[in-house]
Design a protein around this nucleic acid. Structure first.
Length: 508
RNA sequence: GGCGCGUUGGUCAAUCGGUUAAGACGCUUCCCUUUCACGGAAGAAUGACGGGUUCGAUUCCCGUACGCGCUACCA
C-alpha cells in the first residue's frame, strides 16, 4: 500500500479554470489511473486576498464535466482531510518554526516599504531585479542580521514578521524530472523565499511540501513555470527530514498563444475568438464574463482528447482516444518538453470527429438542449435521434445542430431563391405543380418510393431529374445544405413536404 | 541583467545514429455528389545556425542565436 501512486491537482480558487490547468489535471489523472492510483484535489487558498467566491465549486464542476472524479477532495473528503489549505493553517507554522530552530530559516521583519527600498537601492543595469538572497540578507532586518535580544524584543512587541528560507550560499542541487531528465541549480542563485507570511499563512512553497508529505503524494506534476522554484522545494524536503519520501517531479510544458509567443491567456481567447476556460466563468468582483469550451459547443470527450494530444502522443498514429484509452496509453515520459501553440482549428476538428463518432443516444440530451434554445420544443426523442443521425457529420460544434436540424422541425422562413432563379422556368414550375399531386397520391412514403416518383415525373416531363433537386431542396430546407432531399422529404412526412412545395414564393 | 527550460513544415507532431524525414490540422487542386457535408487522391520542410564526436547525424556533445519561464508576504 505504501507504493500506491498518489497525485494531486492543487489549484488556487482565484478564477476560471484555464486550458493549461485542465491539461495539468488531466495528466495527473491519467497517470494516477494508469497506475491504479489515487487522484486528489487540494485547494490552495493560502492567499486570502485573491480568494474568489464560487471558484472552488466552478473547478469541481469543470472536473466533473471532463469526467474526472477525485478520489479525495474537499467535497468527498478522505483520509487526509481537510483538503483546503486555509483549514490546515495551524500545521504550517510548526514546520516553519522547526526550520528556524534548526538554522534553515529565519525571521524577517522588513516592511513592504523596506523591501521596495531594497529593490530600488540595489537595482543596477546588470541586476535589474535584486533578490532577497544570501548576498543581501545580512543587510536586511532579520534574525540573521539582528542580535538575539533585539529579535526577541521585536517579536514580543508584536512586530509583523515572516519566516524566510535560508538558501545555502553555494551548493549544487539536482533532481530527475520525469520529462526533462536531470535538472540542476546552484542554491546561491535562488532567493530566500518567504515560507510563512505575516498573517500566519504559508506561501505555496511551504504548503506544497508540507501537504504533499502529509498526503503521501508520490508524484508531483505542475506547470513549467514552477521549475525555477524547485530548488526551494527540494531543500525543504531535505531539511524537514523527508527527502526519502519526496515525490517524483515532472514539469509540464506550457500551452502557448497561437500567434506570436508566450503563455496562452484568457486575453488571447477574447482577442482571437475562442474559449480558454473549460466552462463559462463570470468573475463575481468585476462581472467580467469569459466563455467556456462547454458552452461553445464542445463535447467533454473531445475537449479532453484534444488537451491530451497537446503535448503528448503514444508514438502511434492514433489521435482519437476515449478517456479509457488515454488512461491505458498514457505515460509521462512521452510528454513533450517544448511548449505547444494552441490551435483552435484543430480543437474544432477533434469535436467534429467526436460528434461524428458519437451515437444518437449520447448526443440526444445535448442536441435537445441546443434545439430548445433555438425555440424548437416538444419534439419526439426518436425523431430527434433520427435527425441527429442524418446531420451530425456536418456539425462541428453542438450549436450547429440548430441550423442543420431546424428545417426538420419547422418549415423554412426564408428561401435562398437566388440559388435557383437563374435556371427557373415554366417547365419546372409545372413540374412542381404536378409533383404535389403525384406525391399526394403516393401510398408508400419511403425515401426510395419518393425518389422513384420524383424521377418518373421528371422523365415524363422531359426534365433532367438532377436539375430539379436543387429547387426541391430550397423548398424543403430553404438553403443549399443538408442531407439528400428525398431523405428529408421522408423524414418530415408527406403533409409537410406538400405544404413546403406549395409555399415556395414565386421565383420569377 | 541573473538563473532555468526549450527549438523538426503555418500549427500539432513521429523518428530513441543509417528512412524517399511518418501522420494529423489548416490551406490549394482534383475525384465522388447536379446541395452542404462525409469519404478518397494529390501538393508544399534545404530538421534555428556554427562547430565537433562518428563510417554515418534531425537524432550525442559544445557554442551561438532566438523563444519562453522565473526573478512577490501570487499561485
Amino acid at each position: 500500500m505504501s507504493d500506491k501512486v498518489r497525485v494531486r491537482f492543487a489549484p488556487s480558487p482565484t478564477g476560471g479554470l484555464h486550458l493549461g490547468g485542465v491539461r495539468t489535471v488531466l495528466y495527473n489523472y491519467l497517470f494516477a489511473k494508469h497506475h491504479g492510483g489515487d487522484f486528489i484535489l487540494r485547494i490552495e487558498d493560502t492567499d486570502q486576498s485573491r480568494f474568489v467566491e464560487g471558484a472552488e465549486d466552478y473547478i469541481m464542476e469543470c472536473l466533473k464535466w471532463c469526467g474526472i472524479e477525485p478520489d479525495e477532495s474537499p467535497a468527498v473528503g478522505g483520509p487526509h482531510a481537510p483538503y483546503r489549505q486555509s483549514e490546515r493553517k495551524e500545521s504550517y507554522r510548526e514546520y516553519a518554526e522547526k526550520l528556524v530552530a534548526d538554522g534553515f530559516a529565519y525571521y524577517a521583519f522588513d516592511t513592504p516599504q523596506e523591501l521596495e527600498e531594497m529593490r530600488a537601492n540595489y537595482k543596477t543595469a546588470e541586476n535589474p531585479s535584486p533578490q532577497y538572497d544570501n548576498r543581501l540578507r545580512t543587510k536586511m532586518r532579520n534574525s540573521l542580521s539582528l542580535d538575539a535580544a533585539t529579535v526577541q524584543q521585536l517579536i514580543a512587541d508584536g512586530t509583523p514578521y515572516v519566516i524566510r528560507i535560508k538558501m545555502p550560499e553555494n551548493e549544487t542541487i539536482s533532481f530527475t524530472d520525469m520529462i526533462r531528465g536531470e535538472v540542476s541549480f546552484n542554491t546561491g542563485n535562488v532567493d530566500d523565499k518567504v515560507l510563512l507570511k505575516h498573517d500566519g499563512m504559508p506561501t505555496y512553497h511551504l504548503a506544497v511540501v508540507v501537504d504533499d508529505h502529509a498526503m503521501e503524494i508520490t508524484h508531483a506534476f505542475r506547470g513549467e513555470e514552477w521549475l525555477p522554484s524547485a530548488p526551494v522545494h527540494l531543500m525543504l524536503w531535505r531539511w524537514l527530514g523527508w527527502e526519502e519520501r519526496m515525490p517524483q517531479w515532472a514539469h509540464l510544458p506550457l500551452i502557448l498563444k497561437p500567434d506570436g509567443n508566450g503563455k496562452l491567456s484568457k486575453r488571447d481567447g477574447d482577442r482571437l475568438g475562442f474559449p480558454v476556460f473549460a466552462m463559462n466563468w463570470t468573475d463575481p468582483r468585476t462581472n467580467e464574463f469569459t466563455q467556456g469550451f462547454r458552452e461553445r459547443g464542445f463535447l467533454p470527450e473531445a475537449f479532453v482528447n484534444m488537451l491530451a494530444m497537446l503535448g503528448w502522443n503514444d508514438g502511434t498514429e492514433q489521435e482519437i482516444y476515449s478517456m479509457e484509452e488515454l488512461i491505458s496509453a498514457f505515460s509521462m515520459d512521452r510528454v513533450h518538453k517544448g511548449g505547444a501553440k494552441f490551435d483552435f482549428e484543430k480543437a474544432k476538428w477533434f469535436n467534429h470527429e467526436w460528434i461524428k463518432r458519437s451515437g444518437e443516444e449520447r448526443l440526444l440530451p445535448d442536441v435537445k438542449a441546443v434545439l430548445e434554445r433555438s425555440g424548437i420544443t416538444g419534439a419526439d426523442d426518436s425523431y430527434i435521434k433520427k435527425v441527429i443521425g442524418m446531420v451530425k457529420e456536418r456539425c462541428t460544434l453542438l450549436g450547429d445542430f440548430a441550423e442543420q436540424g431546424r428545417f426538420f422541425f419547422i418549415a423554412p422562413a426564408v428561401h435562398d431563391i437566388d440559388a435557383i432563379r437563374a435556371k427557373w422556368n415554366g417547365d419546372k414550375e409545372n413540374f412542381f405543380a404536378e409533383l404535389q399531386g403525384v406525391l399526394g397520391d403516393l401510398e408508400d412514403w419511403s425515401t426510395a418510393s419518393i425518389e422513384a416518383a420524383f424521377k418518373e415525373l421528371a422523365t415524363t416531363l422531359s426534365i433532367k431529374p438532377g436539375e430539379l433537386q436543387l429547387p426541391f431542396r430550397i423548398m424543403l430546407v430553404g438553403g443549399k445544405f443538408g442531407p439528400t432531399v428525398f431523405d428529408i422529404a421522408e423524414a418530415i412526412g408527406k403533409e409537410d413536404t406538400l405544404k413546403r412545395i406549395a409555399a415556395l414564393p414565386a421565383v420569377a
